[in-house]
């Protein structure tokens, strides 16, 4: 189970998260929607351990283990994965090499042996097939010279390879064309299983047509102001955020 309890975070003395609480059970997909500046991406960053937010208050627990005090790499190796809204370029390091390093870092953290290079090669090719990506993608430097869509698909490839327990998708649908959105959605649905927990951050209902959430949360001013089933996203698209803000008041 992935639990966030009364999470508060600020930057330069400005409060961004004002007490977020949510629980994602194994097998569940949650979606967070909210207007610009509501704190959605900050939530994703705080979950990943971004250094801009040094002393967040509250708890983040994965299967009962507090991860809020862990370094980002430790959180990743515990099974937390953030698909970045803006993945960064790493020139000089090819995708395959980077993924192998990341994969083996997790193996080492869990006291497991490094993966055999041939087994890794087979595994990564299998995952490429899920995303309908070409093998040439692997020899290119990580995200360097990639289109926006390629970067997002690369994030999903990393997710498939690292096989995390908890996935936070921060606006993964932004910058994707219709075909890419479907491919990425199919890959996430392929990844979904009864022990995975997925948190989708998005502005648009269209992603949720492909990946059906169990629970939708509406976030405003650093808080979750309403939660409901998937129909909430449709209502939101129809009526906008103001209605919910008024409800809150």
């Amino acid at each position: 189970m992935f639990e966030i309890k009364d999470l508060k975070a600020s930057i330069e003395e400005k409060d961004i998260l004002n007490g977020i609480s949510l629980t994602i059970k194994p097998g569940e997909i949650h979606a967070i929607m909210g207007p610009n500046g509501s704190g959605k991406s900050t939530l994703a960053k705080v979950i990943s351990g971004h250094p801009d937010f040094e002393d967040p208050e509250g708890d983040i627990q994965l299967d009962g283990k507090d991860i809020l005090d862990l370094e980002p790499d430790q959180r990743a190796n515990e099974g937390v994965f953030l698909a970045f809204q803006y993945p960064v370029d790493i020139p000089g390091v090819n995708n395959s090499e980077f993924l192998r390093m990341a994969y083996n870092a997790k193996q080492k953290y869990n006291n497991k042996p490094e993966i055999d290079p041939f087994d890794f090669d087979s595994l990564i090719k299998e995952k490429l097939t899920v995303l309908n990506m070409k093998e040439a993608f692997l020899s290119r430097p990580v995200n360097h010279g990639f289109s926006g869509g390629e970067k997002k698909r690369n994030e999903i490839l990393q997710m498939l390879m690292l096989d995390p327990r908890v996935v936070v998708l921060d606006e993964t649908d932004s910058g994707l064309d219709i075909d890419s959105l479907k491919q990425v959605s199919d890959a996430i649905n392929h990844f979904k299983s009864e022990n995975k927990m997925i948190l989708i951050i998005t502005h648009y209902q269209r992603l949720l047509n492909h990946i059906v959430p169990d629970i939708v949360h509406i976030m405003a001013e650093g808080k979750i102001i309403k939660s409901g089933d998937k129909s909430l996203a449709l209502t939101l698209e129809d009526q906008g955020y103001d209605v919910f803000k008024e409800d809150k008041s």
Partner: peptide, 9 residues
């Protein structure tokens, strides 16, 4: 941070 978020120190 991006690289650390993938499990590297």
């Amino acid at each position: 941070h991006y690289i650390k978020s993938r499990g590297l120190t």
